[in-house]
Amino acid sequence: MQKHRGIRSTGIPENILGYLMVAPALLCILLIAIYPVFRTFSLSLTDMKMQFPNMAKYIGLDNYISLLQNDRFWSATYNTLFFTVVSVALELVIGFVMALIMNMPFKGRGLVRAAVLVPWAVPTTISATMWKFMYHDQFGVINDILFRMGFIDQYQSWLGSTSSALWCAIIADVWKTAPFMGLLLLAGLQTIPAELYEAATVDGASKVKQFFRVTLPLVMPTMLVALIFRTLDAFRVFDLIFVLTGGGPGNSTETLSMYAYTTLFRNLNFGMGSAIAVLIFIFIFLISLVYIHLLSRQND
């Protein structure tokens, strides 16, 4: 036991050791995440162009003022909100149904639980590519299925039409993430003690009543946390749009992240692109505040 005493005799006080052990992780976060946020903000106050980084000059809030007067910015904001609200709402409903099913005892339940994880694990660019081919106006299987079932009388250009392209993105997103939502909700359902249902049955409560009086209130905290994750994820949607439509046709699927990317890396306008990024950040911050407020009310 010589070794013990040797290490002990170096005698690092516990709190210093604590800071030392946390330091590498904290340094990474500060350098690669926190500092860049401030630098994005300072970039957004300049007219920096990537081709001439040294000619950037301070222009105050001009980028923000011109963004707020720009229809393309508002259309991207609308697309992002529409995409977020519709896809998260669908994911919640479908995910809840999946969770209720997976919470019942039946043959093959293990297989179902494994299957629902697969879309989550696949890179979004690959699942988006799969959907892009399925949506294809001539060789796409979705046209084939809908045509055979009699829902359409001729093949449609789903991704090429401004009225359907954003819905295509929503469907592909729901396919990928509703199962994930289902798994999170299932974990919440499993924490509800069976005695509560037994007691409710003894009291003569119907299944529907049990759902609203027992299941829903008890699963609510888990549901709110799952909703936070999904809402913030949906709000910053990028990979899916990049592959599926590139923001088109006619900017009809351009989300804020896509707009920021185009401004930054295609137009090389780092000042303006950073201003869009800051606004996305503020939106996300506000959404988080709303959810945190709901969560803390839930806990009271």
């Binding site: 210093i16 050791l17 604590g18 992780a25 690669i32 926190i34 970039l43 990024a277 800051v278």
Partner: peptide, 30 residues
Amino acid sequence: LHFKGKNAILALALSVSMFPGIAIVSPLFL
């Protein structure tokens, strides 16, 4: 371990996990 600021560090990490990549991509690129 016992030291001050543990909750602040965890809260910081949680808020960083909510950062949208696009919000830091321009300075990180530079």
